[in-house]
């Protein structure tokens, strides 16, 4: 369940994050402002509060959403704000000569972003993105607060039915997270290695 949550929120965060980063760097002034407000808002509200707002908010207006969907939405929106900042930093670190050369060839603004800037920015973002992955992986346990049956909640079930197992259950959860983080960062590290450009940067 936690992995499904993680996949959902990272995916949502990625798509929104890339879009917002592009708007923040290349968008017209008004959209740039909107993007900045967006990242400010979603980086300001405590996650647990955001979860509760997204979960209880719609039901006030008669819209019932599942706890799982609410958790993906709340955590995904939050993650998109952080991911947007990672991608923005990467986009801005690309020398302006790359854009000039692309435009001089006759590529449109969008073509330049798509074929020249984004591929470079995503590669530069990997290390920061790995950090975001490690953070949000643990945030999936917060979904527990709105009733998603995730790993923390299951540990609580076990603990409440069989008190002596409390500590072992929690230790088991901790080990699961250790393993998941290790595995995730391993995959990202491999990806970094594969996408390394010969001659361009220092080896890890």
């Amino acid at each position: 369940m936690n992995l499904a949550l993680l996949g959902g929120l990272l995916g949502l965060g990625f798509v929104l994050g890339v879009l917002i980063a592009i708007l923040e760097v290349y968008g017209p002034k008004i959209l740039r402002l909107c993007a900045s407000v967006y990242t400010w808002v979603f980086r300001s509200i405590p996650e647990i509060l955001l979860l509760l707002l997204v979960w209880f908010g719609p039901s006030q207006f008669g819209v019932q959403i599942s706890p799982f969907f609410a958790a993906v939405l709340a955590l995904g929106l939050r993650s998109s704000a952080y991911q947007a900042e990672i991608f923005r930093g990467a986009l801005q670190s690309i020398p302006s000569g790359q854009t000039l050369a692309a435009r001089a060839l006759g590529l449109s603004r969008l073509g330049t972003i798509r074929h020249i800037l984004l591929p470079q920015a995503l590669r530069l973002s990997l290390a920061g993105w790995g950090n975001e992955f490690a953070v949000v992986l643990k945030d999936t346990t917060l979904a527990y607060a709105i009733g998603v049956v995730e790993v923390m909640r299951q540990a609580r079930y076990i603990a409440s039915r069989n008190f002596p197992l409390t500590l072992p259950a929690y230790i088991l959860v901790a080990l699961l997270f250790l393993a998941a983080t290790y595995f995730g960062l391993f995959v990202i590290g491999k990806l970094e290695e594969r996408l390394r450009i010969p001659g361009l940067e220092a080896r890890r």
Binding site: P95, G97, Q98, L100, A101, A102, R103, A104, L105, G106, L107, S108, I116, P119, Q120, R123, I197, L200
Partner: peptide, 19 residues
């Protein structure tokens, strides 16, 4: 863009696409 495609431009610092 159509005009630029007909005019080559060679920069002082090359500006090759690094990726």
């Amino acid at each position: 863009n159509r005009i630029r495609a007909q005019i080559g431009f060679v920069f002082q610092d090359f500006n090759l696409f690094t990726h």
